[in-house]
């Protein structure tokens, strides 16, 4: 099975970090994978996106043109990528920041008030990880077991205090109906 994930939003929303987490989790599961960020000056305050491919076979193109899973963290990203999602794919929308609904009827859609949930739970700007939790719950691109180790692998030793809140953010997403 191959899952192509596209995460998109503003720079500073932890778009690349969310992708990195999924990639590290995939690595721990012995999956084949690739992680590809957008790069350049637009990363500073502009739009950022990140392609993650998780597969049981060697990954061909690391560029996700047509995602199975789209995580849209702001309106421009939803506008830009909604039509690219494969039929039968899934779109996760941060409904705190995006007011409109998804127009397509051939995809599954989850509206997640991730930014609001992160704020309510004093998780700073970890809406990205709330979304990741929800994606794992609904699409299982990676397993729910061993999440702690995966968080540990992406939170640097210097910011060890980030471990708990990242894990908590994922848990919130995982438990969200």
């Amino acid at each position: 099975m191959t899952t192509q994930i596209l995460i998109a939003g503003f720079g500073g929303q932890g778009i690349l970090f969310a992708g990195k987490f999924l990639a590290n989790k995939g690595l721990m599961e012995g999956r084949q994978l690739s992680w590809l960020p957008s790069y350049g000056p637009e990363m500073r305050g502009g739009t950022a996106n990140c392609s993650v491919v998780l597969s049981d076979e060697p990954v061909g193109s690391p560029i996700v043109n047509n995602p199975d899973v789209l995580i849209a963290m702001n309106l421009p990203s939803l506008d830009k990528y909604e039509d690219a999602v494969v039929p039968g794919g899934t779109i996760f929308v941060d409904s705190t920041l995006i007011e409109r609904k998804v127009g397509r009827t051939d995809v599954k859609v989850f509206y997640v008030p991730a930014t609001k949930l992160a704020q309510q739970n004093e998780l700073g700007n970890l809406a990205n990880m709330v979304m990741v939790g929800k994606v794992i719950r609904e699409c299982a691109p990676v397993a729910q077991e061993g999440l702690e180790d995966a968080v540990r692998s992406v939170v640097s030793a210097k910011h060890a205090n980030m471990f708990d809140i990242n894990l908590k953010a994922i848990q919130i997403g995982l438990e969200l109906n």
Partner: peptide, 10 residues
Amino acid sequence: DGTIGQMMEP
């Protein structure tokens, strides 16, 4: 190229 330079893989 920029893609292979910027991407992560195992």
